[in-house]
Design a protein around this nucleic acid. Structure first.
Lengths: 244, 244
DNA sequence: GTGAATTATCGTCATGTTGACAATAAAGCA
DNA sequence: TGCTTTATTGTCAACATGACGATAATTCAC
C-alpha cells in the first residue's frame, strides 16, 4: 500500500446482491424496479451505498433486508467481486462490490409506494434478453451465474438453496435449475449419498407427496458453514456438470 | 442500487497485489517494506490508491509497475476480492481490492532511496510466521494462496508461472510449489499431455540440461488468454491436488 | 378397493480416470 | 565406456462415471 502525497481520491461504494433461488424448478433472481433516473423503470440488482463504519458483507445483508422486508435472510452470502469505478454509472465513478446469495425460496414483502419493489424473476428472462438490467448488472449477473454453477460442482452449497432438511430429488432439482441440464436421478443419488462428508441421513421421510416417500437429508457437519468460516469444500472428486 | 437522500459516504480505495512466482522450486511473493507509519519497516503487499478515472485492474497493474520498475508485467492478473472498509487501517476506513498475479520469475528493479523496495520472499516465511505482514495482508495472502491452489486444479493457469514455452517438468514444479506436495512425474505427464485443449507440443526440445532432453510445450489456443477475456477453464476433469 | 402412475432407491456393466510403479530412452558426466 | 540423471511410455488394479434395468413404496383415478 503506497502513499501518494495528494489526498487520495475517494469513491462512493455500493454493494449489490445477486440473490438466487429455485422456484418451480427454475432459477430466479431477486430484482428491484428503479424509481428514479438513471435507468428509471428498469430492473436492477438490489443494493445500495456502504455506510461509514460498515463492512461489505454487513452492508449487503442490510440492503437486502431493507429491500425485501426480510429480517434474517436465509441461505449463503458471499462476496462475488468488485466492479468499476470507471464508467458504470452515468452520474459518476462508483465502485460496487457485488455479492452472491444462494437461498431457499423466501417471500418478499411488499414495499411502500415510495420504495423500490423487490421481486423474483426467472433468470432465463434476463439471459434471453426479455429483461434488460440497469447499469452493468447483466454482466454482474452473468458472473454470478458462472460462480453459482461452479460452486455446485466443488462445494456443498447446492444445499443452501434448500431448507434445513431436503430430499435428494430436491437437491437434484437445484443442480438441474442452476446448471440448466437434466441429471440422471440414479447416478445423482449415488454420488450425493456416496460422497463422504456431504450429506447426513436424518432418518425421517417425506409424506404426502406423489410416489414413494423419500429420505430426508441434511448437510453433514463437515459441510455445514461454521460461524465466521465459510463452508469447506468437500466434494472430492467434484460433482461435475456435463460439458457440451 | 438504492438511493439514500444524504450524500453517500465516500471511501479511499486501494488496490493491493499478491504477486506469486516460483523460484528454485519454491513459491515466492512480492513484498515491499513500508517506509512510513503505520507498520513502518514491516513488509506489505504492493499497492496503492485508485486514481480518478481508473479501473481496478488498471490501477493494480500501474501500482505493480511503479513499485517493481517493470513496464509490461508478465503473467496472469485477476481480481481476488475486496476487504474492508472497516477496521483494517488505523488511519481510517479504507476499502482495498486485492488482486492476484501469477507470473514467471521476473527481476525487480531497485527502488530509489525514498521508494519502498519490492523484493521476492518465500511464501513459507510468511506462513510460518517468520515474516509478519502489515494491515490484514496476511489474510489476503492466505486467500490468494487458496485461490492459486484451486486455480491450478481447474484451469490452465499453472502455465502463467512459466514462460511462453516450458517442459512438463517445469509445469510440474509449479504445481508442486503451489500445492506444497510432490507429484508423480509419470502420472503428471500423462494428465498434462493427455488433457485435450491444455498443452500443445512445439516440436522443440530442451538442450544442455542434465538428463534426457524434454519436449517443449506451450498453452493450446483454447487455453490461452484472449485479450479481454480470461482463460477459459479446460481441465475437465480437473487435475486434483492430493487431499490430506 | 384395485390397478395405474409416480417417484425413490438399489444394482449392473462397460468405459474412463487415477495412483502406484516397472521399464526404456536419451542425454551429460566421470 | 559405463554411470547418473531426467524424460517418456507402459501396465495394472482400484475407483468413478454414464447409461440404463429392476424393484419398492407411495398417491391417484376409477
Amino acid at each position: 500500500m503506497a502513499e501518494s502525497h495528494p489526498a487520495p481520491e475517494r469513491f462512493p461504494v455500493t454493494v449489490d446482491v445477486v440473490a438466487l433461488t429455485v422456484r418451480d424448478g427454475e432459477l430466479n433472481v431477486l430484482l428491484i424496479t428503479r424509481l428514479i433516473e438513471p435507468f428509471r423503470g428498469k430492473p436492477a440488482l438490489p443494493g445500495g451505498f456502504v455506510l461509514a463504519g460498515e463492512d461489505l458483507m454487513e452492508a449487503a445483508a442490510r440492503e437486502l433486508a431493507e429491500e425485501t422486508g426480510v429480517e434474517r435472510l436465509p441461505g449463503h452470502l458471499e462476496q462475488l467481486g468488485s466492479y468499476g469505478p470507471k464508467g458504470r454509472d452515468p452520474r459518476g465513478d462508483v465502485l460496487t462490490v457485488a455479492h452472491l446469495l444462494l437461498a431457499p425460496d423466501f417471500p418478499v414483502l411488499a414495499a411502500g409506494s415510495d420504495a423500490e419493489q423487490a421481486a423474483w424473476y426467472p433468470v432465463r428472462d434476463v439471459v434471453d434478453g426479455r429483461l434488460e438490467l440497469a447499469f452493468d448488472h447483466a454482466k454482474i449477473l452473468d458472473d454470478a451465474l458462472e460462480r453459482a454453477k461452479s460452486k455446485l460442482e466443488y462445494s456443498p452449497l447446492g444445499a443452501a438453496f434448500c431448507g434445513e432438511e431436503f430430499t435428494i430429488a430436491q437437491l437434484r432439482a437445484v443442480y438441474e435449475a442452476v446448471w440448466g441440464t437434466r441429471l440422471d436421478p440414479r447416478n445423482f443419488h449415488r454420488k450425493a449419498t456416496g460422497t463422504p462428508g456431504f450429506l447426513e441421513d436424518t432418518g425421517r421421510m417425506t409424506t404426502g407427496d406423489a410416489g414413494r416417500p423419500a429420505a430426508l437429508f441434511r448437510l453433514a457437519p463437515e459441510s455445514r458453514p461454521t460461524p465466521g468460516h465459510a463452508a469447506r469444500a468437500v466434494l472430492n472428486p467434484p460433482l461435475m456438470r456435463p460439458r457440451d
